[in-house]
Amino acid sequence: MKANHTLRGLIAAPFTPFDAQGEVNCPSIDKYAEFLISQGISGVFICGTTGESASLTTDERKRIAERWVAAAAGRLKVIVHVGGNCIPQSRELAAHAQRIGAYATAAMSPFFFKPASARELVDFFVPVAAAAPALPFFYYHMPSMTGVSIDVEEFLRLGGETIPNLAGVKYTHNNLMEMQALLNLEEGRFEVLHGFDEILLAGLALGAKAGVGSTYNYIAPVYLRIMECVEKGDLEEARRLQMISVEVVKIIIRHGGGVRGGKAIMNLLGIECGTCRRPLAPWGENELETLRKELENIDFFSLQK
């Protein structure tokens, strides 16, 4: 399957909502989807890193996928992350994603027993992608989390020969030289989804057409304006807007990173996401108010439409 390059704009990586008891709160997804649509989001990449996939059961991941597909109702392209350390589990999740009408599947590398080469990673993914043959399949490259730093260009070359539905890569890495090579590989055969929110401008300059990120959940208008500025050639304004993103990212890093801090931001915006599952720590008594004040100091709450 040759890449159709149909993904454009911003693809949010949603948080998995939990209720007060720590159970998956599927009803919250309905309001969540409407909020993202209102912000100009074109798709969602569910049950990935931001969605705490490694902390979810197989059944929970299926229920979350079903609810997102239903809530999106064709208005968002739903990419279901099916990756993990177990091929049978990933195959089950991939087949389920195709059955419920998802747009695509994606998978990160196994991160306990790790592949030592691009060939080993391709061989791991062949049966996973084959479980949903009608859907585009994306390799989710995030070495900072998986500890797997294989040659992605070699992976795409090899995968293109043995994975018929390999569409491309979600590239969550800051090696821009490699990213440029991927964008130009085999005359642009593969889609390269930019995965580092705080350097989206760099990815766009190299030719990326779509980005997947966690901060797109709550400041999508900033990134959409960056994309517009790049199209118009207004790099000065694009740089200014990118620095707004950087300031937001600095704050969430101080509050436990993109998943923990970002989930708290969604709660502040009225989208019930609850806390994270352990080992990520719950929020302290005064921490949310401290976060709110830090966000107010950079005029964060004026950044949504």
Rank of each mutant, 00 (worst) to 15 (best):
M108G: 11
E294L: 01
S28P: 07
Q89D: 10
Q304G: 03
L268Q: 15
N184V: 05
K62Y: 04
G207V: 13
E52L: 14
V69I: 10
V122R: 08
A264C: 11
L241R: 06
L201M: 12
G188Q: 02
F35I: 00
A72L: 08
R8N: 12
A208Y: 02
E198L: 05
G84R: 12
K263H: 04
A131Q: 13
Q180I: 00
L235Q: 08
L166T: 00
L158G: 01
K31Y: 15
F196S: 14
T146S: 14
R240S: 11
K62C: 01
L158E: 06
R240G: 14
Y216F: 15
E120K: 07
E120W: 03
G203W: 09
P164G: 10
E285R: 11
G262E: 02
A73Q: 13
G188F: 10
D234H: 02
Y140A: 03
A208W: 00
G48T: 12
E198F: 06
G84I: 14
V248Q: 01
G188T: 03
V78K: 00
G203I: 12
I79F: 01
L291R: 01
G233C: 12
K2L: 13
P127T: 00
G168F: 09
Y139C: 01
N165P: 06
A65I: 12
K62R: 15
G284R: 14
C276H: 04
G160V: 06
I11D: 01
G51N: 08
K263Q: 04
N175V: 03
F155D: 04
Y218L: 07
G203Y: 13
V78C: 11
N4L: 09
R292K: 14
A208E: 12
F155P: 08
A118T: 10
V152A: 10
P221F: 00
C229R: 14
G262N: 07
R119H: 10
N267A: 05
T215N: 05
M142P: 05
K62V: 02
D151W: 02
Q89L: 06
Q39R: 15
E236F: 05
Y223S: 07
L235W: 06
L7T: 04
S149G: 03
G74C: 10
A181T: 08
V80T: 05
E60L: 03
I29T: 03
C47I: 15
Q242M: 14
A73C: 04
T275P: 00
G22W: 15
I251G: 07
R99T: 09
I100M: 06
R254N: 08
A116N: 12
E272P: 00
G207M: 08
A104N: 10
L121S: 04
A130C: 12
T57V: 05
I100E: 13
R260G: 00
S302Y: 10
M142K: 06
T49M: 10
V44P: 12
N165V: 08
I252Q: 15
G9E: 00
E34K: 10
L183H: 08
L158R: 07
G159S: 06
G160W: 02
F301K: 14
D30F: 13
L36H: 09
E287I: 12
G48D: 11
P164T: 11
K209D: 13
E187V: 09
E23N: 15
G261N: 02
L56F: 06
G168N: 09
L295D: 00
Q242C: 11
